[in-house]
Amino acid sequence: KSIMKVYCQICRKGDNEELLLLCDGCDKGCHTYCHRPKITTIPDGDWFCPACIAKA
């Protein structure tokens, strides 16, 4: 079994998992407080990182 360690693409830390959003496009993580602008609430439904939005 392989366990994927998810970490924030900005701060490179994997702590505060409850505030770590996973992109529905690329599965990369980003803390709500590292994202600019900050994300104050966990979004309902799908969330896409800035890189995936730029590709769309």
Rank of each mutant, 00 (worst) to 15 (best):
A51Q: 05
D44L: 09
I3R: 07
H35S: 08
I42T: 13
W47T: 04
G45D: 09
R12S: 14
D44P: 14
C26K: 01
D27S: 08
L19T: 08
I39W: 07
L19C: 09
I53T: 04
A54G: 09
P37V: 04
D46C: 10
R36W: 12
N16V: 05
Y33Q: 09
W47G: 03
I42D: 04
M4P: 05
C34R: 01
N16C: 09
K28F: 15
I3M: 08
I39M: 14
C49V: 00
C30F: 13
I3S: 10
A51S: 12
D15K: 11
A56L: 02
Y33T: 15
K28L: 11
D27L: 08
I10W: 11
G14R: 13
Q9R: 05
T32K: 06
Q9N: 11
K38S: 10
G29F: 11
T41H: 11
T32G: 07
T32Q: 07
I10Q: 12
T40H: 07
C30N: 04
E17C: 13
C49R: 00
L21C: 11
C11Y: 00
K55Q: 05
G29W: 06
H35W: 05
D46S: 12
G14T: 14
Q9T: 10
Y33I: 04
Q9S: 15
C11H: 00
I3K: 15
L20G: 02
L22I: 10
T32H: 07
P50G: 04
E18A: 12
Y33N: 04
G25K: 11
E17H: 03
V6Y: 15
L20P: 02
P43E: 11
C34L: 01
C52W: 00
L22T: 12
R36H: 13
K28G: 12
G14I: 04
Y7D: 15
A54E: 15
T32I: 13
D15Y: 02
L21P: 02
K13V: 07
E17G: 13
H31E: 01
C23R: 03
Y7S: 11
T40V: 10
I10M: 11
I3P: 09
Y33A: 08
H35L: 14
C34T: 01
D15L: 02
K5Q: 07
I53M: 13
K38L: 13
A54M: 03
R12L: 08
Q9L: 08
Q9C: 08
D46N: 12
D24A: 14
K13N: 08
P37N: 06
E18R: 10
K13A: 11
R36E: 14
I42S: 10
K28T: 11
T41N: 10
T32P: 03
I3H: 06
I53P: 15
R12Y: 05
D46V: 11
T32F: 04
K5I: 03
W47V: 03
N16Y: 11
K55C: 06
R12A: 13
H35I: 12
S2Y: 02
L20T: 08
T41A: 07
C52Q: 02
D27V: 04
L21W: 04
S2G: 14
K1I: 04
K38E: 05
T41W: 05
T32V: 10
P43M: 03
W47L: 03
D46E: 14
T32L: 13
A56Q: 05
L19I: 07
K38Y: 06
H31G: 02
E18C: 04
G25P: 02
C52T: 02
G25T: 08
Q9D: 14
G45T: 15
C26G: 01
S2K: 08
Y33D: 07
C49A: 00
I39S: 08
K28H: 14
M4V: 06
G14K: 10
K1P: 15
D46G: 11
P37K: 09
E18N: 09
E18Q: 10
M4A: 03
R36V: 14
C30I: 15
C34S: 01
